[in-house]
Computed example of a mutant assay.
Amino acid sequence: MKPTVALLVIGFLILAVGGCTSTANRVINSTVSTFWINSRTVPCTGAGPQTCLQVKRGPELDGGEWEYFYATIAGFDYEPGYLYKLSVRETPLIDAEVPADGSSIEYTLIRVLEKNHDPALLLNDIWVLERIAGEAVDLTAATDLRQPTIEFQLAEQRVMGNNGCNSFNGTLQKAEQGNLRFGPLAMTRKACMNSDVPDRVTAALNRVAGYAIESLRLTLVDESGEELLQYRKVD
């Protein structure tokens, strides 16, 4: 074999071995994680305005807050309205492989472990108040009041409504697995007389920690599971 040809062959073999070694190192350095994917996406800003998945990591969907996920998971076809449990391979990329304004980790779906309808989506409606702490709401003597309502808009993570006198709106910090948390509620300041219903509704809303839905009735409960407010689905 001529020296020039021999050198070319040796160079090719070195590059091939180096490439295989690099690929092998990437596989060795990768990890497998369990991802939970929320049933709804959220607006977010990465390199620019975009829509993000919400994820949690770990074997169980317990505690913690949903995190915005700015990257993509190769091989994963997301369908809104479902909670997913995924097995995902995370592979660190070398600098030369990282796309501009992209993630330094490559995420690849290994397997969909679970896919279930999200029961929290049943909240997504308008509800009319029927009871406070187990007592029926009676506004017949309060001509300046209206029937208290609450409305959930899960896609925007918002809650709004009225306490019979004043309107309120705020953020949904958590709505999952029977747990419910509101952010600070902004409320108008109209003065209403002849009933304690508005004040009782407001006080109860500030204590909400969970919910249950049954037979078109929404029950909001406190930390101990005691009923605070019960609403009826409007339509």
Score class of each variant (00 low, 15 high):
148 P>G: 12
146 R>S: 12
72 T>S: 15
83 L>G: 00
65 E>K: 09
62 D>H: 03
110 I>E: 14
103 S>R: 06
162 N>L: 12
68 Y>Q: 15
78 Y>W: 09
118 D>Q: 00
166 N>D: 14
109 L>R: 03
105 I>F: 03
118 D>H: 00
63 G>E: 11
151 E>K: 06
135 E>R: 01
92 P>L: 14
126 I>Y: 00
92 P>A: 15
119 P>L: 10
151 E>A: 12
68 Y>C: 05
164 G>N: 08
73 I>W: 04
118 D>R: 00
140 T>D: 09
74 A>I: 08
113 L>F: 01
124 N>C: 09
159 V>I: 11
102 G>I: 09
143 T>Q: 10
76 F>Y: 10
162 N>T: 15
100 A>L: 11
161 G>P: 04
112 V>R: 02
87 S>I: 03
69 F>M: 09
108 T>Q: 14
139 L>R: 01
159 V>P: 00
59 P>N: 13
59 P>M: 10
116 N>V: 13
69 F>Q: 07
103 S>C: 04
69 F>L: 11
130 E>P: 01
84 Y>P: 03
79 E>A: 06
151 E>G: 05
59 P>W: 02
110 I>N: 10
102 G>P: 01
60 E>Q: 14
153 Q>R: 06
84 Y>K: 04
137 V>F: 01
98 V>M: 10
126 I>N: 00
156 E>N: 12
105 I>T: 15
163 N>I: 08
133 A>R: 12
140 T>W: 00
94 I>M: 09
118 D>V: 00
152 F>D: 08
99 P>C: 13
137 V>G: 02
145 L>W: 02
74 A>Q: 14
84 Y>H: 05
94 I>W: 04
104 S>K: 11
77 D>A: 13
134 G>N: 05
114 E>C: 01
166 N>T: 13
143 T>A: 09
69 F>R: 05
159 V>D: 11
85 K>Y: 04
102 G>F: 07
78 Y>K: 07
166 N>K: 06
153 Q>W: 02
155 A>I: 07
115 K>G: 04
161 G>L: 11
90 E>M: 11
142 A>W: 01
150 I>L: 07
142 A>E: 05
87 S>C: 03
118 D>I: 00
77 D>Q: 13
127 W>F: 08
93 L>I: 05
72 T>Q: 14
147 Q>A: 12
125 D>K: 05
59 P>T: 14
164 G>I: 06
165 C>R: 09
94 I>E: 14
123 L>D: 02
144 D>Q: 11
147 Q>M: 11
90 E>F: 00
113 L>H: 04
149 T>A: 11
158 R>E: 15
125 D>M: 05
117 H>C: 01
131 R>K: 13
124 N>F: 04
140 T>V: 08
88 V>N: 08
121 L>S: 04
70 Y>R: 15
120 A>V: 03
